[in-house]
């Protein structure tokens, strides 16, 4: 089982990102579940969402304690949240940032999802959309296939800029 924890702020689309990743994994022929932690969170507050991907049906409903991968859609949450908490040894971090991450002893990748969204003019109510481009980065990292990433995006969104942003993230994600 491969477990992903997504850190974002309320309103940034972390929940939708989790759903898109699960949908893409299902289109890859795997089993997947996606769920947020629903607390007293509000718009702008740090939130977490979870994705599980497995070859067999998934019976676990409790939260993910030991993720294989952590995705940080908003680097500013790291000021108050330990995003590496519980990360399995050998686990991976994907950070939305134009700059190489400063994590020590962790396999980390970065991609400027915000920059890509702004470049594609993928902005809703003043916020850049991060949850479709992040699928491109995850496809590059081998979590889902690029084909299924596109399929999942196409099933949930009609605007082609989403797929273009995912392509850009696929190209630009770097260690």
């Amino acid at each position: 089982m491969f477990e992903i924890r997504i850190h974002s702020r309320g309103g940034q689309g972390g929940v939708t990102a989790a759903r898109l990743i699960a949908l893409a994994a299902i289109r890859d022929g795997k089993y997947a579940t996606a769920f947020p932690f629903y607390g007293a969170e509000r718009r702008g507050a740090p939130v977490v969402s979870f994705v599980r991907i497995n070859e067999k049906p998934i019976k676990v409903y409790s939260q993910i304690r030991r993720p294989d991968m952590v995705v940080v859609l908003d680097a500013s949450v790291m000021e108050t949240v330990d995003v590496l908490h519980g990360l399995r040894p050998g686990g991976t971090v994907l950070l939305n940032s134009a700059h190489k991450s400063q994590f020590k002893d962790v396999k980390s990748y970065h991609v400027d999802l915000t920059g890509i969204a702004l470049r594609e003019n993928l902005v809703v109510a003043g916020s850049p959309i991060l949850n479709t481009p992040v699928l491109g980065a995850l496809a590059k990292l081998g979590i889902i296939t690029a084909e299924s990433a596109k399929k999942a995006i196409g099933e949930m969104f009609t605007d082609e800029r989403n797929a273009r942003a995912a392509d850009a993230a696929f190209r630009e994600v770097a260690a």
Binding site: A22, A32, T33, A34, F35, I58, Y61
Partner: peptide, 12 residues
């Protein structure tokens, strides 16, 4: 069905 655990989870 269990609140959030099942009502809000996404599955096949």
């Amino acid at each position: 069905l269990d609140g959030f655990l099942l009502s809000h989870i996404m599955q096949p």
